[in-house]
């Protein structure tokens, strides 16, 4: 059994095999694999007795359930109005220069992906970004350089 299949099985045991378990299982796989591969979605379909199309159809609806490979650390910069007003473009430029990737891209070492997100719910403390589940409000180009450097050291 491959690693993915094992992970899916383990999650199905944990959450159960009802349709209501689909979201938690998809979320767990993304957490551990950074995205949902075809193999993962096929395994989930098999465990939950669903069609693969159904699993893909559900996963592809949700922004955070990536079906293309992403880095270990997914950076999502909020792009909605207040963060736009408070300088999210400069934040993106800073990160983009540091990591040498454009929006939507992943570093060649598969460590970082740089994305934009719709309103993250921190409009009074914009600009704001998420790195995986971690939130960083009130960022500036200087602060963001420091934060990304910490992640670079993290390995």
């Amino acid at each position: 059994m491959t690693k993915i299949k094992e992970l899916v099985k383990e999650q199905a045991e944990k959450h159960g095999r009802a349709r209501t378990s689909l979201m938690p299982i998809l979320q767990e796989v993304v957490r551990s694999e950074n995205y949902l591969s075809e193999e993962a979605m096929e395994a989930i379909a098999e465990e939950l007795d669903l069609s693969t199309a159904d699993v893909f159809g559900t996963a592809s609806f949700y922004t955070f359930l990536d079906t293309v490979p992403r880095g270990k650390y997914v950076i999502r910069v909020c792009k909605t109005i207040t963060c736009h007003m408070k300088g999210k473009d400069e934040i993106i430029r800073t990160i983009s220069d540091m990591l040498k990737i454009k929006l939507g891209e992943t570093t060649t070492d598969k460590k970082f992906s740089l994305l934009q997100a719709n309103c993250l719910g921190w409009c009074h403390k914009g600009p704001v970004m998420l790195i995986n589940d971690e939130v960083y409000p009130e960022i500036t180009p200087e602060k963001v350089t420091e934060i990304v450097n910490q992640y670079l050291k993290k390995g």
């Binding site: 979201m23 938690p24 979320q27 949700y62 922004t63 955070f64 309103c119």
Partner: peptide, 8 residues
Amino acid sequence: ICSGSGAY
């Protein structure tokens, strides 16, 4: 708790 996955 049920978690969402980024859909307004």
